[in-house]
Design a protein around this nucleic acid. Sequence first.
DNA 1: TTGTAAGCGTTATCAT
DNA 2: ATGATAACGCTTACAA
Lengths: 349, 349
Amino acid sequence: MSRRPRRGHGRPTLDDVAQAAGVTRITVSRFFHSPDKLAPETAARVRAAVDEVGYVPNAQAGQLASGRSRVVAALVPNLGYSIFAETIQGLSEGLMDSGYELMLMPTAYSLEREERQLRALLAWSPSGLVLTGRRHSAAAEQLLNGLREQGTPVVEIWDRPEAQDEPDAPARIGFDHREIGMRMARHLLELGHRHLGYVDNPVAEDYRARERRAGFAAAAAQAGARLDEVQAPPGDSFDSGRWALQQLLARPPAPSAVAFANDLLAAGAWVDLQALGSSPSAGPALLGFGDFPISRQLRPMLSTVHTPNAEIGRSAARSLLAALQSGAAPEGQALACELVERGSTPRRT
Amino acid sequence: MSRRPRRGHGRPTLDDVAQAAGVTRITVSRFFHSPDKLAPETAARVRAAVDEVGYVPNAQAGQLASGRSRVVAALVPNLGYSIFAETIQGLSEGLMDSGYELMLMPTAYSLEREERQLRALLAWSPSGLVLTGRRHSAAAEQLLNGLREQGTPVVEIWDRPEAQDEPDAPARIGFDHREIGMRMARHLLELGHRHLGYVDNPVAEDYRARERRAGFAAAAAQAGARLDEVQAPPGDSFDSGRWALQQLLARPPAPSAVAFANDLLAAGAWVDLQALGSSPSAGPALLGFGDFPISRQLRPMLSTVHTPNAEIGRSAARSLLAALQSGAAPEGQALACELVERGSTPRRT
DNA sequence: TTGTAAGCGTTATCAT
DNA sequence: ATGATAACGCTTACAA
């Protein structure tokens, strides 16, 4: 009985179920989307028929007909970086069982790459969008505006919430990197340091790292403190951090406290210092950023800034789902970072 | 001019482009999928029309018509775990610009959760599938067999390649965890240890960790060595590792070398040992698994097994894309792990 | 090289 | 509470 037509998956369709249940297509469709509109007895017959024929919905057909894609797309620089990995884990947990699926695209910190991914994404008509950071290429901005105008919720993560002076900004979930940079500097200043160092990360496109550095420098200048800055070279982060600290210490007078763009850089430097026999109270104080797991394992432990990695993702999921349900624009959220005082920044006496 | 019909996105369609170019739909479609079938002059007109109307393809419509989804789905236990994060990063790099998009679903090490995700996935008719590990629920196995029978390439990662005695197994990319466990034990035995310890991880569902442990135990037994085993408690890995090592050392005679299910557990224990003033040559030797970045930063550095995290993802992408192109079944691949001898397993004299 | 006709499997709209 | 009909935007098969 070659019932198979020449095209199609060969999978059972709504019509197959309908036939088995003695109803029509649309009733079966309602069984899935608004079951309460069916007579209980009809629902039971449909349920049985679904199991009998082994029906599996066709997402593409449903999406084409409804115009809703049930895809949430997330663009992040690099999934291998623990902070983003944890954010994505949080995001996917938040999306789980919501009926939305997560489509993931890495951008490698490149605005151009992000724009290309975004273009590819448009074909999917994503229901919602998660981007990293508030800066995009001009063309990408246009695409995003287009999406938002037609009602697609867009959330930017890992950046500061929208300010008064940017009323049309998308919802943002994260924190102000410049401010965190200032807090880092002020913390070291409060500990009595008057000559600071800053080790920036090597990724030129990571403007958020640059903002932390700028905030750090601004707070140092404000306090009249001296500041030496180094850009860490590309390559293994630990080695880069080590190298950068050596640079700072090589030309006296050396800073008495050094902050780093991330914990990996700081950890490399810290391990090196310890190995060279530097005592925490005599050598330079070190302050990291990100609170990577390693930082609690070094001895003394590394002082750092704790960032809400997973919470950013969960919050983005919540915001998106709420917007999707209400039809309103998604809401941003300021998430707090915590300066974690540990052994690498001892209080000077 | 209310040209808008009552349904639809309002986005330009192939017909809009066709009208602007003075051709028909199908010619525009061909412009995208087999441009060489167009007369150069026609192609130019179509190109101009595409830009003019700002055409963006509708992925759902194309997929419905063609029956091909251009979605590759990946199911992994947890994206926040660095090994899987790196694998997914590798996978998405490998898929980039291939025309396939990555859909990601976490399973939380639960076969039941995996099965549910798989069911949800079926609605999408994924072009290809990446699963973690070779064990699935019985129902999931059925679903997978169904997919494979209808030609969907399925690749299992992080597990040993298919053996002779499992001719129908899907392609696998990874390594044999039992064998690695044996190698770990043998390495310690070769260093002269006759009393070994093993600290297993607390995730009951992580059968691969269990296989490493079993391999370790088998090799120890084979050599007639004594073996003490502990299951680390849930919670912070470092603390768990610490606690587990203390258990092993608490009841003399204590093992002279201890292997761990992962580097985090080992690192916690190692840091503790160092802090207590144990000298590497006197205290127990420690061997981790996974070669996490932290392991190179501890002093002395932690000996461990290096796993090809990102390469597993890249290889999976290659295998899938090749299968998708050729129509043949995807190929598995054995990837090597390397036992990295470092300071935490000194050679006994 | 280009076009015509016929779906793909679902949901929206309007009836009953 | 259920159904008939018409999209949704694209690709396949077959013609010309």
